[in-house]
């Protein structure tokens, strides 16, 4: 105890800096449906409508750029898939708009009753830019409701 506690500060800082990637797990129910009804339970968001619905999933930017993003989903439709688009853009200004986008989708005929995931890779570094994740979930089928279980975003630190 006589050893100054302040001497521990560099050790704590070193431990914190050892991580090169800042990962955040977002519950699927942070996604909000852009049109009609939605349902959330156990951290998931599910489409309770009969038709495909669009969901907006917020991502907080607090580092440099996204290295990887994974969207965990359940797809219970044998005729439609889960489709997601990740965007990275600059805030619109006098020079206009600009953004990069990447799409990922499950196969229309694929059914995943246990969570599968879509992967997005490196996004450009746009200073003071924004992220946007939008997904379409198939409508309800006799097998049940398709859902976004969670999404995992890994930013470069």
């Amino acid at each position: 105890m006589r050893t100054s506690l302040l001497a521990l500060l560099p050790l704590v800082a070193l431990a914190a800096d050892a991580h090169a990637q800042d990962r955040k797990h977002y519950p699927g129910n942070m996604c909000r449906v852009a049109s009609t009804s939605y349902f959330d339970n156990d951290g998931r968001v599910a489409n309770t409508a009969a038709t495909s619905q669009k969901f907006e999933c917020p991502i907080i930017r607090d580092n440099v750029n996204i290295q990887r993003t994974w969207v965990y989903y359940k797809d219970l439709s044998a005729t439609d898939g889960v489709k997601c688009r990740l965007k990275t853009g600059k805030i619109d200004d006098a020079s206009g708009t600009a953004y990069w986008f990447e799409d990922a989708a499950s196969g229309n005929a694929d059914v995943n009753s246990t969570p599968a995931y879509l992967t997005f890779v490196d996004q450009p570094n746009i200073p003071d830019g924004y992220y946007s994740l939008r997904c379409y979930l198939p409508g309800v089928t006799s097998a049940g409701q398709s859902a976004i279980v969670k999404y995992l975003v890994a930013e470069v630190e």
Binding site: A98, F101, D103
Partner: peptide
């Protein structure tokens, strides 16, 4: 343009990655 600029990537009819920008010569 402002109303649908964010959806301009929907004009691509397949699963893609891409880039959308304003035309510097035509606002």
């Amino acid at each position: 343009l402002a109303a649908v600029a964010g959806d301009a990537a929907d004009s691509v009819p397949w699963t893609a990655s891409g880039f959308v920008r304003s035309d510097p010569d035509d606002p």
